[in-house]
Amino acid sequence: MSPHVAQAGAGTEGRPRPRTPGRLHRMRVRARTWLPGLLMVLPSILLIGVFVYGMIGWNTSLALSDQHAPVQDGSFVGLTNFAELWQESRWPAAVGNAVVFTAVFVGGALFLGWFLGLMLDKGLRGEAAFRTLFLAPMAVSFIATGVVWRWLMNPAPAERATGLNALFVQFDLDFLVNDWWTAPNMGMAAMALPAIWQLSGYIMALFLAGFRGVPEELREAARVDGCSEWGVYRHVVMPQLRPVTLSAVIILGHMSLKVFDLIIAIAGQQIVADVPAVYMWTTVFEVRDPAKGATIASYLLIAVAVFVIPYLVWTIRKERSEGR
């Protein structure tokens, strides 16, 4: 990836090669009209070229090198670092944790967001208040909400319970008392709760906009055809929501793969809640191994790119085919 991509972006500065004098003249004339536009975007092209794609290129070259200490020079070793990660026990475990987290978080937020959207769709009294409430967590950082969630999800057993466990004990729901995020293997499912809480309002808003984007005539037509209100949703509204759902999955998914703040705020750096982003942080700051840190970063980038790039291409094509 990347240095090439960056050049492709920057390459637009160069004028296309003229073949005939006539063309040359035409190009000049046209360039006079588009050149100022390019100049106006140029600062951003440079900034993004250097600090996004340039840095990605540099990171990649670091990942392909054996510079395993900050104070040494590295040489090219190909994909060695990428392969070695899979041979240790920590990396696969971290990936596994990220997968569990992603599955629960994306599934949970998608469902809850959709459900909230559905509830609020039909112009309810007090809708605005509910919507404001459900969306509010989105305005706050994971670091801040992590403070309260770490307290809520305190794993102390019944006799010393605090947080939610204490609430369960108080209402004689002792069977609900659990280890939360400190449980090996499935702890990451609990870790997804704060994330669901924080993002499902956003998904609700997306779906709400999606629901309301469905023309009322369509719904009415279905009703005339004898569809129940549920049937209208099932057969008319839902199929129209695929693009919204896709957007929601992309947004949640790309957040989820690189989840970091939330884990640090709740668990710090412990294997039980290890994910690639936290592993990278340990590698860079504690082991101080740039090549390995860059390798983990590359994997994160690849994981995100794998589904974001097709999505972007799809969106832009669709937009173009709809004729802007």
């Binding site: 975007v41 970063a297 980038l301």
Partner: peptide
């Protein structure tokens, strides 16, 4: 509204920048 040749490519590259994990640029930065 004032497009130049290659504007779409630039736009796509910008958009991808929206999704890039910060981690991927962190060490060099």
């Amino acid at each position: 509204r004032w497009r130049f040749p290659g504007a779409d490519t630039v736009f796509t590259l910008f958009l991808f920048g929206m999704f890039i994990p910060y981690q991927a640029v962190m060490i060099p930065l």
